[in-house]
């Protein structure tokens, strides 16, 4: 047993798991409020990271300014996407809605490759010190930052939904669209807001991962990786998304560890979450925290 490696990998798992949790939360936000399964979630990360990278390298803006511009851009982008593409799809069968988001993901992924190339591009240096001492371990500053940012986003989400007026409107819409509408909530605005928030927060996660690993189109695969997380947690539970994200993050790093120590089959890191996904779907399709669907004729 190589304890140092195990602890190192589990730390990585926790950090990447928090980021999965954040992205899964964005996914659940869209699903809960608009009943749309967003297969283009990973592309939000990709676009956010590339746009931020572009502001920082081509325009040479300071990080904070470029980052804020990116957030502004993603807000507009999220709203535009909802209004132009997804609003006409309200009321269509589920396969159509899924396919629209898959088509979008294909489109954005290819257009990002077209505009920025297929190579990994490192982010300009954001922090002066590369590593800091944390609980006796040398940890990269970017990792600490990503952990802090994820926790910050999670607390922000909790605050937004618990106390703010818009958060209440979104919860009402998620609970029952017709009732919410009759109480004077603009469902259209809520839908647009859900997409905007989801795009912005995903972009933050994208930028964070971009700072750690560099920006490339592998970022979009996180959008696929969140499926095990959300299914594990329950498709309509925000808490479940966070828990599921952390579990999947830990699990894939643990799979990596067992693989490197004993099995030596390779690629277990990528594939283990999907086996888990199938098993969960077989035994407990509504996840740990999801609400069970009861159908009446």
């Amino acid at each position: 047993m190589n304890w140092d490696l195990l602890i190192q990998l589990l730390m990585n798992g926790l950090i990447i798991g928090c980021l999965y949790g954040v992205v899964a939360m964005c996914f659940v936000l869209i699903y809960k409020s608009t009943q749309i399964v967003n297969f283009a979630q990973g592309e939000f990360l990709l676009i956010g990271a590339w746009v931020c990278w572009w502001f920082l390298t081509t325009w040479e803006l300071p990080f904070i300014v470029g980052f804020l511009f990116t957030l502004g851009f993603m807000t507009v982008f999220g709203i535009a996407l909802q209004v132009i593409v997804l609003r006409p799809m309200i009321g269509e069968p589920i396969i159509s809605v899924i396919m629209v988001t898959i088509g979008l993901s294909l489109f954005f992924q290819a257009s990002m490759k077209w505009m920025f190339g297929v190579n990994v591009q490192p982010f300009p240096r954001v922090f002066d010190t590369q590593t800091v001492e944390f609980l006796g371990f040398q940890v990269q500053t970017a990792y600490i930052m990503s952990l802090v940012i994820s926790l910050f986003i999670m607390v922000g989400f909790a605050w937004f939904f618990k106390t703010s007026k818009h958060g209440l409107a979104m919860r009402a819409t998620a609970f029952d669209q017709q009732v919410a509408q009759s109480l004077g909530i603009s469902v259209k605005n809520v839908f647009a807001m859900a997409w905007a928030i989801s795009a912005v927060v995903s972009a933050v996660a994208g930028v964070v991962i971009g700072i750690v690993n560099g920006v490339s189109d592998t970022l979009a695969f996180i959008g696929i990786k969140v499926f095990p997380a959300v299914i594990l947690g329950g498709l309509d539970s925000i808490i479940g998304a966070i828990v599921g994200g952390i579990i999947i993050g830990l699990l894939e790093n643990f799979a990596e560890f067992t693989d490197s120590q004993w099995f030596h089959v390779g690629n277990l890191y990528t594939i283990a979450p999907f086996y888990v996904l199938v098993i969960i779907l077989m035994i407990k399709p509504y996840g740990l925290f999801g609400t069970k669907d009861i159908e009446r004729v």
Binding site: M99, I102, G103, F107, F108, Q109
Partner: peptide, 11 residues
């Protein structure tokens, strides 16, 4: 561009 157009055609 080919991939983009396929995605766009679906949408």
């Amino acid at each position: 561009m080919k991939e983009m157009v396929i995605g766009l055609a679906i949408v």
